[in-house]
Amino acid sequence: MMDIIVSNLSKSFGSKRVLDRFNATFPARSVTCLMGPSGCGKTTLLNILMGLMQADSGEIAGMPQLKSAVFQEDRLCESFNAVANVRLVCDKGVNNEEIIRHLERVGLAGSWQQAVSELSGGMRRRVAIVRAMLAPSEILFLDEPFKGLDQDTKQMTMQYVKDNIKEKTVIMVTHSLEEAEAFADQLIVMGF
């Protein structure tokens, strides 16, 4: 696995320039946290790296093929339960029992049979996190993954994520110094 090198990346929305010749290196198999004030372009950068958005100019080198993500929104299939939502992205080798074990680790024992539309915001967030962890991937994008979780649940979920991101390149957007301290091998502060 190679480092991901971003060179001179620019992106504008109308007359507003969100990214202006942005340069960074994201080392392989390490966690890079992106921090900065709202509107500084963190999520835009993540969306470009994920391939969901086109940059106006610039280059990205070394991006792996297998990607996984916790998006800013949960992006779950509402009428299906948590297991089905996770199974959607898993390889055939991952069975329901394994998925349930992961859901239990983030405190969703007993809730996985309900349609995700019936779950609370925090529960839905954890389903999205488990989905991202179990999807086959070399790189993981996390956009404010612990948003909306209470302190105890956040600690439990952070530990779960730590246990499951070993050997993966991770790019995480966060506003929380606590999260950055817990995860970051490298910290990039944007917008200054």
Binding site: M50, G51, L52, L66, K67, S68, A69, F71, E73, R75, C77, L88, V89, A135
Partner: peptide, 12 residues
Amino acid sequence: HKLLEMANLFRV
């Protein structure tokens, strides 16, 4: 379209 983006990223 956000679900379709999710499906594209995860290669569903």
